[in-house]
Structure formats: structure tokens, C-alpha cells
Amino acid sequence: MWLAQLMSPRNFLRFLGAALLGIGGLALYVGYGTPFMAVVTVLGAVTVAGSFFADSALAGRRRREAQAFAAIHGWTFHEHLTGLLAPLSPPPFNATDTRYVDVIKGQFRGFECYDGTFEWRVRIDDDLTLSSRHRVAVVRLADELPRLMLIPEGLSSAISKILGGADRDFESASFNRNWRVLCSDPRIAHDMLGPRVLERLDALTPRAPMLFERGLAVRIDREGEGIASLASRLGGLIAVAQYLPRHTVEDHGRFANSPGPLPSMTTPGALTGGYRPDMRTADERHLSRPRRRGVDRRFTGTHDSSPDDDGRLASDPPGR
């Protein structure tokens, strides 16, 4: 991920400008100050300055677009919302320095959604620091499940395979040709990617990497992707969230299987009234009891594995 950004337009311009500045400065330092070297030095300085100026102009335009969208469609605008993506572990979210900026938040097709610009910076060595930006859309899932990554087939997926990423095959041959699936639990991956989800993901254009981790569904697009494509970018994430089988959440969701707060934490006076053997016993029973939802499911019968087809994805953009 980091090395792939070496040839991004921003870094390429800055590397080129720095190289020209270095060559011109060295020539002037050793007394080879010809007019040509002066031009090289000036060109290097202009290239570096121009890259920073372009960055600033693009950031201002993205901020204005996000604010206008939020005002029109009833969403909220946040200058910074970095904590939302901080728990994610794969690159680029584990970079040395990250920010999620110019973020809009709102409801779309019944789900809590976000969209903004993710900025990251990582130091390769003492003399080399890489930075980049991505357009990142987020949908909050019903629960936290084991990590699942979807990578469009191509150079990035080939690199992931070389580095040891194990691919999974699914019922759709077309989906298998177009996507690489990396997961820690194949059973849960097959639950999350049912036939209806595979169909919707396979129809996405353009495709982009997607990550499902820590209760979030995240799509990572190129920096230049505009807010006009928000409905399309959210569509694949919502397809997974919408058809997430209830039994998968009940059996494997972190929140669904949490025993909840201990009695000693919720009983008034239990923390300030001294040692209470009955509270200790209550805590032990609380921690050892069966999973509540699993018990409910056994006694009340099985649930439908997914919503009705009436909830299929619409093509209209958010708020329109």
C-alpha cells in the first residue's frame, strides 16, 4: 500500500521538484551556476510549490461540496472525524498519522452513513515520508464481525496473493473473476456474501476495495472521486449490511454475544458498600450464563436469514 503511492501524482510531482531543486542547488554550491542550472532550480521550486497549491485548492473545493450537500440533504458536516476509522487495522488506516476530514454524516436507506477524505502519512525512513488521500465512504453495520476484505481483481489483488492473502471462491463465477475475498473466517464470509449480495457487488462500476471490520463497512476510492458518486459508492456496502443474516449476527457478533455489564456495576451501592459475597456470586453467574440471543433462538425457532426482497437497493442518490 505504501510503496504503491510512490507514483501517485502528488508524490511524483514532489519527488520531481525535490530532485530538480537538489540538482540545481548542488550545481550552484560547487560553482557551476550556469543559466540552465538556475532554470532547473526555479523549475524545481515551482513544481513543489505548485503541488502544495493544488492540494490546497482541491481541499477547499471538497469542503465546499460537502457543506453544500449536507445543507441540501439534511446531513451533518464535520471538519474532522478521525476517531471513526481509528480502530481499523489494514493499510492505509494503520499509518503513522491519519485524518478523516470534510466528513458528511446522515441516514441513507435506513443506515448510518459517512463520506469524507481520508488523509494518511507514513515514514518509510529518516529521509522519506509518503502521504496520500482517499475518498472513503462508511456504513455502520448491525454488529462487529470478523474482518472481511473485498479487493477488485488486478494489480493490488495480485500483490495481496503474493504476500500470502488466501482467496475464497463463491457461488458466482463472474464474482470470482472480478473480486478477491480475504477473510479470517470463511464460514462468516460465505454468510455475509450471499447470492443477492454477490449479484450487486458484481454489478458495481467502478469497483474499489472494501473492508468490513469493527462494525463498519468501508469503501476506499481514489482521491479524485466526487461526492456525486456517493449513492453508487454506498450501494455495495449497504448491500452487505442489508442482507446480513440475522443468525450470523447472533452467533458471531461481538455485541450480540456480550454478557453485558456486571451486576456489581449496575446495582446501586455495590461499588461503595464494601465487600459483598452476593455480588461476587452474581457476577460469576452473569459471566457463565449462555449467550442470550442464542438461547432465544433455540426456544423461539429460527429467524429469516435476510430481509425481504422489498428492501432491494434503489438507484436514486441520497436525499433525492
Rank of each mutant, 00 (worst) to 15 (best):
L150V: 13
V139M: 03
H134T: 12
L155M: 11
M149Q: 09
E144A: 09
P152S: 12
P152M: 15
R133L: 13
I151C: 04
L130P: 00
S156T: 08
V138I: 14
D126P: 01
R133I: 14
S131R: 00
L150K: 05
D127I: 11
P146H: 14
S156Q: 10
L130C: 02
L150R: 04
S132N: 15
E153K: 05
D126W: 06
P146G: 11
M149Y: 07
R147L: 09
I151D: 02
R147P: 04
A137Q: 03
A142W: 04
L141V: 02
M149A: 12
L155K: 11
H134N: 15
R135G: 03
S156I: 01
E144K: 03
E153P: 03
D127A: 13
L141A: 10
P146I: 07
G154W: 09
V138S: 05
M149P: 01
D125N: 11
G154N: 07
S156E: 10
R135W: 04
M149V: 11
D127V: 08
R140P: 02
P152H: 08
R133F: 12
G154P: 05
A137N: 07
P152R: 06
E153L: 10
H134G: 03
L130G: 00
P146Y: 10
V139T: 12
S156N: 05
D143T: 05
R133T: 14
L128P: 08
L148R: 01
L128S: 15
D125E: 15
E144S: 06
V136I: 08
R140V: 08
R135Q: 14
D127R: 06
P152G: 14
G154I: 15
H134A: 12
L130M: 10
L128R: 12
L141T: 04
S131G: 07
T129F: 09
